[in-house]
Computed example of a mutant assay.
Amino acid sequence: MCLVLIIRICLLPLFFSQMRATQRMQVLQPQIQRIQRKYAARKDPRSKEAMQREIMALQQRHNANPLGSCLLSLIQAPILCSLFYTLQSLPASAAGNAEPLSGIDRVMAGDIESSSIFGVRIADSFGTVVSPQSHVVIGVAVALMCLMLFAMQWLLIHRNTPKDAMDSPQFRTQKLTAFVFPAIYVVSGGTLPFGVLLYWLTNNLWNFGQTLCQLRWFPAPGSEAGERKAERDHERENRRRAASGLPSLEEERAAAAREEAHVRREREKSVASRNRRQRKNVQLAKR
């Protein structure tokens, strides 16, 4: 669990970079969809290549990387795999049936394997424990993992999706993933060592917190979270203006509208006066 905290704190700069990249991709989605509709009726390879070139050129012009949102998962994957392999190899190393893992000798492997949390050894899985209490602890850990993942995906899908994209086939596919991945967790959670479950659970809790931060500070434009952020920014700006003795945004817009109406009326009066003079000059010329 501390390993997760250390890794995710080190990855915070990458997280903020990922959020900015995701926002840029979300802003470009309407333009990408227009390009895709442009080539929707063309099925030949040349048209598909032209569509991909236009989309890539658009992304390059706006410095948007579609793979930017995958970096955090890609960086953590080797760590998770290494932890899984280490915890799985501990019983054999402690029993002397396998070679020591790097600096973990037989004695250290035994000490690590015998350490437990809530009565469950970190190298044990759901299939290797025998006590009902251990089964309950592992089951609760898997349930919390699934709950955090489902809640995170539900928030991203329903709160951070632009409203004009909710009728697209991609949105319906995203809604299915909110149920598919927790189901995969249930199946895989029974075979993973308890230490890996703790790592995964802590990681999901961190991801859930990051999702709440994303919805508050980096929402997608046009989404429900984006509208709420716009309202908060509006209220914050009005409070700042009130503290500085400045007019509110509404008062400023009203004053700008009055000024624009005044300028328009003056322009209309000037045009009407010019037209009257022209008609008068025409009448005098006729006489």
Score class of each variant (00 low, 15 high):
residue 119 G to I: 02
residue 144 L to G: 05
residue 56 M to T: 13
residue 176 L to C: 09
residue 254 A to C: 05
residue 165 A to D: 13
residue 229 K to P: 02
residue 148 M to C: 12
residue 189 G to N: 07
residue 67 L to D: 08
residue 42 R to H: 12
residue 72 L to E: 02
residue 24 R to F: 08
residue 265 R to F: 05
residue 150 F to N: 12
residue 209 G to P: 01
residue 162 P to W: 02
residue 45 P to M: 06
residue 54 E to A: 12
residue 262 H to M: 09
residue 22 T to A: 11
residue 94 A to L: 07
residue 13 P to M: 06
residue 275 N to P: 01
residue 280 K to Y: 09
residue 109 A to F: 00
residue 109 A to Q: 01
residue 256 A to D: 12
residue 76 Q to G: 03
residue 274 R to W: 10
residue 219 P to W: 09
residue 280 K to P: 00
residue 236 R to S: 14
residue 79 I to Q: 01
residue 165 A to W: 03
residue 261 A to K: 13
residue 106 R to W: 00
residue 35 I to H: 00
residue 245 G to L: 08
residue 216 R to Y: 11
residue 72 L to V: 13
residue 128 T to C: 09
residue 19 M to A: 13
residue 55 I to S: 09
residue 119 G to Q: 04
residue 113 E to P: 01
residue 139 G to W: 03
residue 131 S to Y: 03
residue 58 L to C: 04
residue 269 K to W: 10
residue 134 S to W: 02
residue 287 R to E: 11
residue 245 G to M: 04
residue 195 G to S: 03
residue 252 E to I: 05
residue 265 R to K: 08
residue 66 P to C: 05
residue 253 R to Q: 10
residue 275 N to W: 09
residue 236 R to I: 07
residue 112 I to W: 11
residue 228 R to V: 01
residue 190 G to W: 08
residue 60 Q to G: 01
residue 82 S to I: 02
residue 12 L to D: 04
residue 49 E to Y: 08
residue 85 Y to H: 14
residue 121 R to M: 03
residue 2 C to S: 15
residue 175 K to A: 09
residue 106 R to H: 03
residue 215 L to V: 05
residue 96 G to Q: 00
residue 8 R to H: 02
residue 56 M to R: 13
residue 149 L to E: 15
residue 287 R to Q: 14
residue 189 G to I: 04
residue 279 R to V: 14
residue 231 E to L: 14
residue 73 S to H: 04
residue 129 V to Y: 03
residue 273 S to V: 08
residue 277 R to E: 15
residue 40 A to Y: 08
residue 199 Y to R: 11
residue 188 S to Y: 10
residue 105 D to Q: 08
residue 80 L to E: 06
residue 134 S to F: 00
residue 133 Q to P: 00
residue 11 L to V: 04
residue 229 K to S: 04
residue 179 F to M: 10
residue 266 E to S: 11
residue 227 E to N: 05
residue 143 A to L: 11
residue 28 L to C: 03
residue 40 A to T: 07
residue 205 L to E: 03
residue 73 S to G: 15
residue 91 P to W: 06
residue 244 S to K: 15
residue 277 R to W: 07
residue 72 L to P: 02
residue 265 R to G: 05
residue 265 R to L: 12
residue 255 A to H: 06
residue 158 H to G: 02
residue 277 R to D: 14
residue 52 Q to I: 02
residue 122 I to W: 00
residue 219 P to S: 05
residue 63 N to Q: 11
residue 118 F to D: 05
residue 127 G to F: 12
residue 33 Q to M: 12
residue 283 Q to Y: 04
residue 203 N to E: 14
residue 194 F to D: 07
residue 122 I to C: 06
residue 89 S to F: 08
residue 128 T to V: 07
residue 144 L to I: 13
residue 79 I to G: 01
residue 250 E to P: 02
residue 36 Q to R: 15
residue 95 A to S: 12
residue 94 A to T: 04
residue 126 F to E: 05
residue 270 S to E: 14
residue 255 A to S: 09
residue 90 L to P: 00
residue 85 Y to K: 14
residue 55 I to Q: 04
residue 18 Q to G: 12
residue 113 E to C: 11
residue 185 Y to M: 08
residue 26 Q to E: 11
residue 75 I to A: 13
